[in-house]
Every structure is written in C-alpha cells, then in structure tokens.
Amino acid sequence: MSIKVEVPTILRSLTDGAKAVEGEGTDLAGLFVDLDARYPGIRDRLVEDGALRRFVNVYLNDEDVRFLASLATPLTAGDVVTILPAVAGGAV
C-alpha cells in the first residue's frame, strides 16, 4: 500500500530534490522507518526519542496528526501525508 508524502523544501536535500515521494506503512511511525531506508536521515529530522519533533508539523489528509494519534496514527493506501516545519520563534 502506497502513501504519498509531501516533502518541505528544507528536507528535499534528503529526497534528491523531490517535492513528493511514496512510502509504505500501517502507521506514521512505520512510514517514517520505510522512508528512512530510501532517504537516510529523514526520520531523524522528524522523530526524536520516539515522538514527533516539536517543531515539525505532520498532516494526514490535511489534518494535523497531533489531533489524531501522532506517530501511532494509522494509515491506509491512498493517504496523503504532508510535512511542514513549524514557523515559530521568539525573543528568548
């Protein structure tokens, strides 16, 4: 089963410049392991200590996965996963 993954500019150095790639997995954690096999280093940019990195937003079919089950969010064929780095900062 194939999941479409939309890749932000800052991670395209890991996907040979591709804006979108295909991956497989029954949940988001599995998808990132699958992607990392072909695009080494990408999982580390998304996952830290077994949780989604704070400054990365991941959407499943346009829904923020933090409002679903985060890395345990189940996936089905045809799903679209979008990765966007948070736009954030502050004075301290």
Binding site: P85, A86, V87, A91
Partner: peptide
Amino acid sequence: EEPIVIYHSHTATPAYPSRTDISYASEPN
C-alpha cells in the same frame, strides 16, 4: 509562490534573532 519574507516582532528586546529563532528557522531561502 514561496515565502520571501518571514517576519515577527520582538516586544522587549532588539530586532535580532534569538536562539529560539535560529533553532526553528526552516526556510533557508
């Protein structure tokens, strides 16, 4: 289109990137 400028304000400190700003910056262009 793409984001050409990403802006924000500091309310009590100079207009210079903080450590947080630097660690979160994700649009190299």
